[in-house]
Amino acid sequence: MIVGQQKDFDEIKKMISGYNRILVLGCQTCVAISFAGGMREVEILASMIRMDRKMAGQDIEIVEDATLRQCDFEFLDSVENRVDNCDAVLSLACGVGVQALAERYPDKVILPGLNTTFMGLTEKMGVWSERCAGCGNCILDKTGGLCPIARCSKGLFNGPCGGSMDGKCEISPDVDCVWQLIIDRLTALNQLEKLEEIFPIKDWDVSGHGGTRKIVREDLTA
C-alpha cells in the first residue's frame, strides 16, 4: 500500500491561508491504513485548523469528508457538491489522489495535506516501512523475496558493500542490511548458489526514467 505522512501543520497553515471555506477530504484506503489521511485524521486536522483560525481571530468554514478512494474518478463524484461550495480542497490522499481530484475538478484549488512517502507495509501497529520502489523490473525471485533496490541504501545488486556490520547498514545501526537478510534467507532456503549469478546491468527504462509510465491492456479497454 501507499504510505503517507501528514505535512507539518505550519506548512498546511501557510498553504490554506486566504481560503475561508475548505473541504478537508480524506481517503479511506492506503493512507487511512497508515493513519495519515483517513476520516479519523480528517477530523483531527479540521479541528486543529478551526482552533488555529479562531485564535487568529479569523473565520473559517470547514467541511470534513472522505472518499473510499481518491484515485478513482468515480468515487470523486459523490463529493461534487461539497467541492463546488468551497474555496479550496485540502486532500489527505496520496499524490495520486490529489492529482485525480485536480483532474476531476480543474477549476478548484487542490492542496496536498500529505507527503506521499513510499510503498510499504505495516510492520506492526504504528510502524510502517518501505518495501517496493516500483522499479518496473522485479528481481525478487533472485534475492529470496527481499528487494535490494528498495531496501539497500546504496541500491547494490551484487552483495553487500564494505559497510555492512553485524547485519546492519552503515548508514544507521537501526537499518538492517538487506543483503545480510538476503544471504541469510537464501542460506535457509538452500539457494545460496543463486547469488553466484552476476546480475546484469539493470534496465532502468521501465522504472520511470524513460518518462511517465503507462500501461494499456487492450483486452480490457473499451
Binding site: 482552533m51 479562531k54 485564535m55 487568529a56 481571530g57 479569523q58
Partner: peptide
Amino acid sequence: IPLKTKAISNSKEE
C-alpha cells in the same frame, strides 16, 4: 484558553 482570548483580542484589532 487562547482560543477564546486571542479570538477576542484579534477581532478587536481588526
